[in-house]
Design a protein around this nucleic acid. Structure first.
Lengths: 248, 248
DNA sequence: AAAATAATTGCAAGCTTTTGCGAAATACTG
DNA sequence: CAGTATTTCGCAAAAGCTTGCAATTATTTT
């Protein structure tokens, strides 16, 4: 069995199971514990799952590449988040949208009648707005990171310095009471800080499963953002202790 | 057995089996391991499969990107133009590709093994290079023109000033002996001039039907470009009178 | 048709990746 | 805090891959 094949199987299993322990995987795939372990490490490096003590959990990192366009499931967590986020949009606003699936789907769902300027470093997101006649798009250029499908680097930062947007919708990998907003890529964490600085207020959109997750690099502590949008009711117990933020 | 025949068999087998290891292929096709290996490298260059340690997998297996049709018709005019254009590419070159369909398809057909830097103002083109691991992409940012799906404006021009690329592949709407290279959009005509200035040499790729066509805005006279690639034989009568250009 | 050139093939030696094992370290549980 | 479960690490064997070379076959040129 090829390594790639195995990794594919692990991912498929994870879609169904949500959490699997490595021993079971090892039996199931008929390879040693170590091989599974190494596969899982590789997959984690690619951001496709998250390793925890006792097994692996799905990371719901849908690659826009993977054909899952127009992928907001009716009534799903993501749809709830997006519908809440859309309420923040007003005519003639200038908003920054960074890369990431949530923002991509948010962009797709922007009402066609709304007049907006969208600043983004994500080519797929820019293209998702092709049919939005009233949305002007400013694309930030720089070195293009294929893996994340975004532009990053000094050029992007420089261009950002000249902007004063009304809103910034930030995507993150994890959000935690004490560790704040975190992400897996260092450069991106810096970029997101700069995007915050380029906007009057910052809104963070996350689905439930990212709550309590801590990733490698902090962007900022919780209280620096102006609003946190989740699919949960603002009174939900999972959100207790996130002080200083408007919950939506 | 001919090489092409063998490669066809490999692809067919892969369609059915999703994966296969090179030793088995070697037995099946009754040629040495090395020949199979070299076939597989060629196929990988064309993006038709993915080589991994232990064998090959059909690349639709790893990525659900299968639906992404390669848009060049076999034996069509465009394919001829593109195959000629690819001969100009050498390892470690820095090339500028502007928007337009010819360049988009050219980008798709760049061999996966080629190491290049591609500078572009076209988000779709940047994304078309997602699977080209050896191609670094620099995305030019600015105002995004949805209709053409390219970035244009002063930011793009400024970024261009700092580049000294080896080659610029220019797309045009029309080419004519006396009126030169022309295009429908004024701003774009200026941008293309700037791209010419940012590259050591400029190559123009056109299919037959654009020859003799004159559009609203001239980019430059014919003799300013270094090579003209068409689907026609360089000796073809349609090309008589285009002086001062290398015909390919 | 002969010579020159180019493309293809197979081989062998050397190199890299992958794998499983056992010991050691670390994280959870009651 | 001890005990158990889980994870990590280093290593060496095995499997697989690459590279240069020389022989062969095909193609083009003279």
């Amino acid at each position: 069995m090829l390594k790639e094949e195995r990794q594919q199987l692990i991912l498929e299993h994870l879609k169904a199971a949500k959490k699997i322990n490595l021993g079971d995987l090892s039996n199931m795939l008929k390879v040693s514990y170590d091989s599974v372990r190494r596969d899982v490490i590789e997959l984690e490096d690619k951001g496709l799952l998250k390793k925890v003590h006792g097994g692996v959990v799905s990371n719901s990192y849908l690659n826009i590449l993977a054909g899952q366009r127009k992928g907001v499931k009716k009534g799903g967590d993501l749809e709830i988040v997006i519908s809440k986020a859309l309420k923040f949009l007003k005519n003639n606003q200038i908003i920054i949208l960074d890369g990431g699936t949530t923002n991509f789907f948010l962009a797709e769902q922007i009402p066609k009648s709304l007049t907006l300027t969208v600043i983004t470093n994500s080519p797929p997101l820019a293209m998702a707005l092709n049919e939005h006649e009233n949305v002007e798009v400013i694309l930030l250029g720089g070195r293009y990171y294929k893996r994340y499908q975004i532009a990053m680097g000094p050029e992007v930062s420089n261009q950002l310095k000249r902007f004063n947007a009304d809103l910034y919708f930030m995507g993150v990998n994890g959000i935690d009471k004490t560790k704040g907003l975190t992400i897996r890529n260092y450069e991106e964490s810096i970029l997101k800080q700069q995007m915050m600085a380029a906007a009057k207020s910052t809104i963070c959109c996350v689905v439930e499963e990212k709550i309590g997750v801590v990733e490698a690099y902090q962007i900022c502590p919780i209280e620096k953002i102006d609003a946190l949008i989740t699919n949960l009711d603002p009174e939900n117990y999972s959100l207790i202790g996130y002080d200083g933020v408007v919950m939506v």
